[in-house]
Design a protein around this nucleic acid. Structure first.
Lengths: 336, 336
DNA sequence: TCGCCCCCTGGTATCGCTACCTTTTTCGGT
DNA sequence: ACCGAAAAAGGTAGCGATACCAGGGGGCGA
């Protein structure tokens, strides 16, 4: 053990502050945590002592004592894709205002890794947990239920969520896009989707809905998750020979859609006249590219905010588990 | 205080495991933390007990006792821009392999907020700290130095970094791009840069270098930070009437560059013949858009990895403060 | 066979803070 | 002026783990 880094970070502890201010440690604790319960002159004296000594409270000790870590763990697949940025940022901001820090863990897109991350963060005794998606392995589900930890699952829906859920139905998105294309008069359809459970949900529901109307799905292709622009370009290359005029393609993310659109134009395929493209996520790129991209918009920031509210309510214990469905919306732009 | 959420998360503690396995708590601790120091049969018995009880160690208690939180705090301006994704992901992976969790905090682009975030995370007694940029307020610098906390600053350079530094010189980038444009035969120049210190560094160094060669900077415009595609489009709109033929514009990010390129093409300005554009960051968009975008590439993942290594070395106390400069590279594509 | 040393294990004392309860002080109402 | 309730402050006892030191047992060299 390294003496230097040990003794150093905060030699000043609450008893030092208390001694300097001439009060009991408990009073210093109150000044920090429940200032209302301390008289103004005492609080001022304590604050002066804190300032003078440069005291930084030790939340590890406080957490052990109070059994509250004031920390919420959030596990998302990745932050490399813009998809989860908005919810993570707004969630972080919202719980931050309530005095909680967020410990962010990245799960990739494999369940084993997510399970491992969940187990690992539980060792830090978070006061709450945000998870992406609503599919848990049985062992983890059991662990979470038994721990009675407040949990919010976002960005998906489920018949029996673990606890609180704030999301939407990806299959419904797929069907809505299918109807949108059908109503626009398209006669042939294709779908490119990432292999994560939610991308698959959107893509397969799209294809099923098309077929249930007796219409042809000329191409259905699965991409790696998370998928990017290059995946979209390559996928369009692969399916280009199957595209009839008036084909409409649904992509599981705006990046894939942008890639498909770029590749189509390079091949002389007119977008949207010969090929209509719809993405998902409403990334800035879709609004600002030319031609701009039709997409499905979900208010990620809203999801983060609502998830934070619901989880915080759950933490203080006032609310029962809630399930909030957030709307989605097809934003029609130039690519359709 | 809510009884339910209190008593629940882990009723099982180390003494329970010890009792079941018929050993002392200390031995259970050894099985978890230093398995080499426990005999195989004992370890097996303890592991069985852990399994049977579903014991999850309490890192808060362990952290208080050992004065090691096994946690590293990372503070970056934002994760909404792709800029910091790579370093954050690779840093997280690398320190994760060494058993550390990362607590990610977002500072926005204001120093006050960053200062507040630093103070807040110090209360959790991280074993190390990753900061973006190398400019600290005097109070924070003093706090960090006195705390002797291992710190790594990334993505910038400084004469006197707080501790370890892994980055590059943004002004050098600006000059390199200026030389690149000059050598390509451009006669007029423009620059669009975000108002964060590093964007300003790149942009102003570019402009100064151009002027020092006696050449004209026909437009110099500051954008909000973080800046996006729309900012790039608007900026090009604003400076369009100042653009002479053979003008070259340097943008402080690939998003701005892409926006500028999109807007230019909509206005019938030929890229790259009438207007050459260079961005910064080598986002996937630049490689995959058409025309593809010339940019400056910095290996963010490498920065994250090296920062992790250096910080971990610092934490175990073997290394002195290091300063690692990572290279950058101009990637020439179709926009120039 | 004896003794030294190392391997393994156990006991004790915190780590820094807060929950809980008790004591002291303040103050309005009559 | 007194009483009782409420506000303010203090004392004590952990929270759940690990550092540190001590002790017991077995292997190996003399």
């Amino acid at each position: 053990m390294n003496e230097r880094s040990r003794a150093s970070v905060a030699p000043v502890k609450i008893t030092d502050v208390a001694a300097l201010a001439g009060v009991a440690p408990m009073t210093v604790s109150r000044v920090i945590n429940t200032p209302d319960r301390v008289s103004a002159p005492t609080a001022a004296r304590v604050r002066a002592a804190i300032e003078q000594l440069g005291y930084v409270p030790n939340l590890i000790a406080g957490g052990l004592s109070s059994r509250r870590s004031r920390m919420i763990a959030a596990i998302v697949p990745t932050i490399a894709s813009p998809m989860f940025n908005a919810p993570v940022q707004s969630f972080t901001d919202a719980v931050g205002k309530a005095g909680y820090h967020v410990m962010l863990a990245l799960s990739g897109y494999t369940q084993e890794h997510e399970d491992a991350q969940i187990r690992a963060v539980l060792a830090r005794r978070p006061d709450g947990l945000l998870l992406t998606g609503a599919r848990r392995s049985p062992a983890i589900r059991k662990l979470l239920l038994e721990s009675q930890l407040p949990v919010v699952e976002i960005w998906d829906t489920a018949d029996e969520p673990t606890d609180v859920l704030v999301g939407f139905d990806h299959r419904e998105v797929g069907r809505a896009v299918a109807d949108f294309f059908i109503n626009a008069g398209h006669t042939h359809f294709a779908v490119l989707y990432a292999s994560d459970p939610r991308g698959v949900g959107r893509g397969q529901a799209f294809a099923e809905h098309i077929r249930s109307r007796g219409l042809p799905v000329v191409a259905e292709k699965m991409l790696p998750a998370p998928s990017n622009i290059a995946d979209g370009r390559n996928a369009l290359k692969d399916i280009a020979d199957k595209l009839a005029p008036r084909t409409a393609v649904f992509c599981s993310s705006d990046l894939v859609a942008y890639g498909a659109m770029t590749e189509a134009r390079l091949r002389g395929i007119d977008v949207p006249r010969q090929l209509a493209i719809c993405g998902f996520g409403d990334f800035e790129l879709s609004a600002q590219s030319h031609p701009s991209g039709t997409t499905v918009r979900v208010d990620g920031a809203e999801i983060g905010r609502v998830a934070a509210e619901a989880l915080l309510a759950r933490i203080v214990g006032t609310d029962e588990a809630a399930r909030v469905m957030v709307p989605f919306e097809i934003i029609v732009r130039q690519s359709t």
